[in-house]
Amino acid sequence: MLEISELRKRFAPEGKVALDGVSFSVRPGEMFGFVGANGAGKTTTMRIVMGVLQQDSGEVTWQGSPLTFAERRRIGYMPEERGLYQKMRVAEQIEYFGRLHGLDPEPARKATDALIERLGLGERRGDAVEALSLGNQQRVQLAVALVHDPDVLILDEPFSGLDPIAVDALASALLERARGGVPVIFSSHQLELVERLCDSVGIVARGRMVASGTVADLRAAEGRTLKVVVRDAAPGWADGLPGDLTVNGDRQVLMTATGDDQEILSRAVKAGRVEHFGLEQPTLTEIFKEAVA
């Protein structure tokens, strides 16, 4: 398990607090979505995990022990500021980073060939990176993070600016690694994507973790809302019922977090044609807005 405990970081000379006790853990095979507004502390946290920055206090441990240089070499890291050599060819680049991570020439070549095929880069393997689209450059950057078969994956905004096809390709590769037992952490502003992919989520605001847990637990903590949609309803059918009633043409929509479900259903059926009757839970976007408010 990768565990981040009470990380604190203040940047001099202005003394800005970047992290104020950030804590979370990611288990093997778990996909963890790290979300927050720009400047919330996500990138700073990732850089501390990778050893690029030094925390003022707190600890990062892997399998119960502090991370060493050797263990950090076993992490696949995709920084927000992409670190590719623009003049280098695709296959050459991926293989080169494999060698930097300690692979011998032949294993580095085999891993490069497999990733080029897996990520749909076969026709571009001989092209310079600068000739690639943003989506294909992202695929190369992911291949660089994966080439040494890492024990942990940490990716900072890996889906930024990608079209839906590229998003699906990268998401599929990450899910494949997670199913193989690798802890995966990624940050993203695309909350619908985080909700779809992640087992658990951490929401950070102004350097503090304001919510964390599984998506299901976070949604359940916000409570339930009953949504009833009635078409051609008789006037006044919802009088006295709790909640908010809105009218849209010939449809009336009642949203309520309290009240007797059966009584509400009975009155709705008598009033008109019930098109929808069910519990609604907040989306991750709604939870995020509430948490950072």
Rank of each mutant, 00 (worst) to 15 (best):
M1E: 15
L2T: 02
E3L: 12
E6D: 15
R10L: 06
F11C: 05
A12K: 13
K16G: 07
L19I: 03
D20E: 15
V22P: 00
P28R: 05
P28N: 07
E30F: 07
E30M: 06
E30R: 07
E30L: 07
M31N: 04
F32I: 05
G33M: 00
G33S: 02
F34G: 02
V35W: 07
G41L: 10
M46D: 01
I48W: 01
V52M: 14
Q55C: 02
G58D: 08
E59V: 07
V60T: 14
T61S: 11
Q63S: 14
T68G: 00
T68W: 10
F69E: 15
A70P: 04
I75K: 02
G76Q: 01
E81G: 09
R82S: 02
R82F: 02
R82L: 08
G83S: 09
L84M: 14
L84R: 11
M88T: 05
R89C: 07
V90H: 07
Y96M: 14
F97T: 00
G102R: 01
P105C: 03
E106K: 04
R109H: 13
T112F: 05
T112G: 01
A114V: 04
L115E: 11
E117I: 10
L119R: 08
G120A: 04
R125C: 03
G126Q: 15
V129C: 12
V129P: 05
A131L: 13
L132P: 06
L132W: 10
S133C: 06
S133F: 05
Q138W: 01
Q138E: 06
Q138L: 03
Q141A: 15
L142G: 01
A143E: 11
V144R: 14
H148Y: 08
H148V: 05
P150F: 12
I154H: 01
I154G: 01
E157A: 11
E157Q: 12
P158H: 14
P158V: 05
F159Y: 15
I165M: 11
A166G: 06
A166S: 14
D168V: 07
L170N: 09
S172G: 15
L175Y: 08
A178H: 06
R179S: 07
G180W: 10
V182G: 00
V182L: 12
F186E: 10
S187A: 15
S187K: 06
S188A: 06
S188Y: 07
L197F: 06
I203R: 03
A205Q: 13
V210E: 10
V210W: 09
A211I: 03
S212I: 04
S212N: 11
A216I: 01
A216C: 00
A221R: 15
E222G: 10
G223S: 10
R224K: 14
V228N: 00
V229N: 03
V230D: 02
V230G: 00
A234K: 15
A238T: 00
L241E: 04
G243Q: 04
L245S: 00
L254W: 07
M255E: 15
T258I: 00
Q262Y: 12
E263V: 11
S266Q: 15
R267A: 02
A268P: 01
A271K: 08
R273A: 13
R273H: 09
L279N: 08
L279K: 10
L279F: 14
E280H: 14
Q281H: 08
Q281V: 09
P282E: 06
T283Q: 12
E286M: 08
K289L: 13
E290D: 11
A291F: 06
